[in-house]
Design a protein around this nucleic acid. Structure first.
Length: 132
RNA sequence: AGAGCAGGCCACCUUAUCGCUGCAACAUUAGUUGGAGAGGAAAGUCCGGACACCGUAGUGCGGCAUAGCGGGUAACGCCCGUCCACCGAAAGGUGAGGACAAGUGCAACAGAAAGCAAGUACAGUUCGGCUGUAGUGAAAUCAGGUAAACUCUAUGCGGUGAAACGCCAUGUAAACCAACAUUAAAGGGCGGCACGUCCAAGUUGGAGGGUAGGCGGAUUGAGCUUUUGGGCAACCAGGGGCCUAGAUAAAUGGUAGGGAUAUACAGAAUCCGGCUUAUGGCCUGCUUUAUUU
């Protein structure tokens, strides 16, 4: 029976390990969709979680902490609303890192659109690699 | 009403719903319910402390900071009161406001000359640039001004900084620690220098440092609020009441409706007291100008 995915984001699903962050930046695969970029890597977790996610807004572009917080929260919200897209269609464990590379402050609508495109692109890419 | 001065307050609210981080209760695996959840500057990291560790940090020199007087405070470079100086018509504001009767240095314009070299005019004269006057100037061989000039005086200051520090699990070596043994020099460490002081190899025992992880440190505190008394005030003393974020790649957000519309600067990271800077709005008091009565 397929377990129902709710629009939640508990602490467990947050990426915390410094090692994984390092690995993501050095050897993670990347997909860019306009202002959003996804870095991901296949891995395994000790606790029973399928994905671990982190959100990053670069300090170089947004030096105000309030703005960085805002961007991260918007990304989280967009990811949370689109979770079923990956949870219901994907096998395996992944670590995700979402980067915001735009120059302007985004709004939720744009973020949601970008997130949908990005996740769809990710699914496509992974399936192709599996089939090859 | 205009212009200005001083001080205080607030920081969109609310309902529903989807989420996030602690806490409490119930379940004691999953979870459910309840309640709490950024600031006046959380910022800059500029001062002062608490706390922690560092070879107990001693002495001298050096260095840095402060500077009327009195008070407040855990402490301060902060605050309050007051004198003086300056600015302003006033309300009010500003303040590197100790000392030039120790030494050294500096000084625009004017002037012969503002300290080592020169000497104007007139008069006196013991013929010595010796005396007086004039003239320039704030000041003239007699001192004065200047210490956001060196300097002197008084007072204070050990260093590092929560990535500190303590503990747990993992755990490899000659590097860590303790005890014993033991010593001469070189060398090295300890805040800049000097004095001073500490350190090596061996044996035995314990297990350190580094790396990644977890827990503590960590939120009850020089706390908030109310009241009485003291004080011009800063503030102090007593009584009552309250518990008010605690994350760790780092919680406090999204959507919809309503309040007519719009929502400044900005995000806790060990904790306090200040200062400075950024910034939307409201209120109070005072000064002054003009008009009306």
């Amino acid at each position: 029976m397929e377990k129902t995915v709710r629009f939640t984001f508990p602490k467990k699903e947050r990426l915390k390990s410094k090692k994984l962050f390092k690995a993501l930046f050095t050897e993670g695969s990347g997909i860019r969709e306009h202002a959003l970029k996804l870095l991901y890597i296949k891995t395994a977790f000790d606790d029973d979680v399928q994905f671990k996610v982190a959100f990053v807004a670069p300090k170089k572009k947004f030096n105000s902490a309030v703005k960085r917080n805002r961007i991260k929260r918007l990304m989280l919200e967009a990811y949370r609303m689109n979770k079923p897209l990956v949870f219901n269609n994907m096998e395996g464990n992944f670590a995700f890192l979402f980067l915001y590379l735009g120059d302007d402050m985004p709004n939720l609508e744009a973020m949601d659109k970008g997130m949908k495109k990005l996740l769809t692109a990710f699914l496509k890419k992974e399936r192709n690699e599996k089939n090859v």
